[in-house]
Amino acid sequence: MTLILGMLLDAILGEPKWLWSRFPHPAVLMGRLIGWCDQTFNHDDRKGLMGFITIAALCIGVGLLGWIIQLAPGYVLDVIVVAILLAQKSLVEHVQAVGDALRLSLGDGRRSVAMIVGRDTKEMDQSAVARSAIESAAENLSDGVIAPIFWFAVAGLPGLLIYKITNTADSMIGYRTPRHAEFGWASARLDDLLNLIPARLTALLIWTVTARPNPKPIFKDAPLHRSPNAGWPEAAMAHGLDIALSGPRSYDGEARNYPFVNGTGERVLNADHIDHAVAVLWKTWALTLGVAFVAMILI
């Protein structure tokens, strides 16, 4: 019941600005804590060890916090925490905003998509803007919705909070930069491990709601992606919408010649394709809610 109510509350309210403009979001607090750890411990010859100890301590700390919260009578607080740490409505809003902006002009589309992706956007054409938004939709559906739901179902609030702190750490210190190659290694590998099942589960859910006849192309194309996990929801979205995703792009002025996922799919994309991706986000959410409801009845 807690999970179902949390999903519904998140889908209805999302991230209300009136609340998070006055108080820091828990994800922001996690980010500040990780930033402090980075500044405090990432500066000696034992960066790898210190990075391992850091992510272990963070996981133990938030796991204990989740256990303490669960001790509170009733389930209202649990529902609120679940709703806050899910990102269905905010994901939909951010992705749809790109489609709405792209309908106004290419420049508006570029500015909007720059808010949700880390790649260079100034030279993007219409297809690249739409492709970037759809890729973000697929990847963040896994990271921001399905994975948190999965780990809550497996281990309650401790599991959910451990996943969120790990995912946040990976986004901040998990990149293979000179500064974080050693210190963030443990966080990045733990994030890969925690997303191993949810990423493939997300692909299965997308494949189900898009009613594609054969899942084999997903298994073929997912390994083409640079990420061991993100390729699964992205491949499922690409084949579900019959479009080509991934492909060449630029980061910090450096061109990356990544292969296309579903390279035979449509490559000329527009705001309508973003609308279709948003519809898939809601259908996947609805299917997940249905599975959770059935599981609640059976268990």
Rank of each mutant, 00 (worst) to 15 (best):
Q70I: 00
P73N: 01
L65V: 14
V92P: 01
W67I: 03
I80T: 11
I53F: 13
L58I: 04
I53C: 11
G74T: 04
A87I: 03
S90A: 15
A56G: 01
I69Y: 08
A87K: 01
F52G: 10
L85F: 15
I60R: 00
Q70N: 02
G99D: 07
S90E: 15
L65F: 15
R103G: 10
G61K: 00
E93R: 06
L86M: 07
A57W: 04
I84W: 08
V81R: 00
A101N: 13
G63S: 10
V82E: 01
L85Q: 01
A97M: 09
I55P: 05
L77E: 03
L104A: 12
Y75V: 02
A87S: 15
V76R: 07
Q70V: 00
S90N: 07
I55C: 07
A56M: 10
L86V: 02
T54M: 14
D78L: 00
L71D: 02
K89E: 06
L102Q: 01
I55R: 00
I55F: 07
L91N: 08
E93M: 10
I53K: 10
A101C: 14
V95D: 15
L49H: 13
G61Y: 07
Q70A: 10
I84L: 10
I84C: 07
G66I: 00
L58H: 01
Q88M: 15
I84P: 03
A56N: 04
C59H: 04
A56E: 12
S90P: 07
L104Y: 07
E93K: 10
D100V: 09
L77G: 04
I84T: 13
L71W: 09
V62F: 13
L64H: 09
L64N: 05
V81A: 08
L71M: 12
